[in-house]
Amino acid sequence: MQYPEAIAKLIDSYMKLPGIGSKTATRLAFYTIDMNEDDVKEFSKALVATKNDLHYCSICGNLTDEDPCEICRDKTRDQSTILVVEEPKDVMVMEKVQEYHGLYHVLHGVLSPIEGKGPEDLNISSLIKRLQKIKAVKEVIVATNATPEGEATAMYLSKLIKPAGIKVTRLAHGLSVGSDIEYADEVTLFKAVQGRTEI
């Protein structure tokens, strides 16, 4: 026997989500049938809203429901620093720290020719235009991941930006806070010794 069309379609839709196969999708679909109607309506509205209401900010590239985004509109934030990250979720992580009060720029990836991502495929040209337009920026902090690709992207940005007389900095490498030296891997330890600071 085949499932009625409505359920079959729902199962199919659930299966498009990452990490969900046919069994889980079927279980979710049958659970949905038993949910109360308001919850289901709320759920479907939320799904549609992510598509209709969310955009990338035209200034920094972050996810937002209004353009420009909340951070770019906030004049009380420090306008002289821009922190460059790979993904929108990195902005959320930085914001949680509540220590950084400057602006952001989201690249949407890192340079990686193997994955077909060259300089023109990232949100880099808008960063350069932004720096040319707003003279107030004194420092660009590159917060890409500590992978070879992240490092290459950071070096690339510094080559582009430094000639304009803007300071380019990179997040520090080293021991994670609260960790024991004896458990750190040798490369991390080596980087930590290289990047030691005077006290």
């Binding site: 060259g118 023109e120 690709e149």
Partner: peptide
């Protein structure tokens, strides 16, 4: 691997930025 791919991209004019090659 990344660099060889990028050289190929430059060769076939899929990319043109030489600064990234320097990096």
């Amino acid at each position: 691997k990344q660099r060889n791919r990028y050289l190929k991209d430059l060769h076939y004019k899929r990319q043109k930025d030489r600064v990234y090659l320097d990096v």
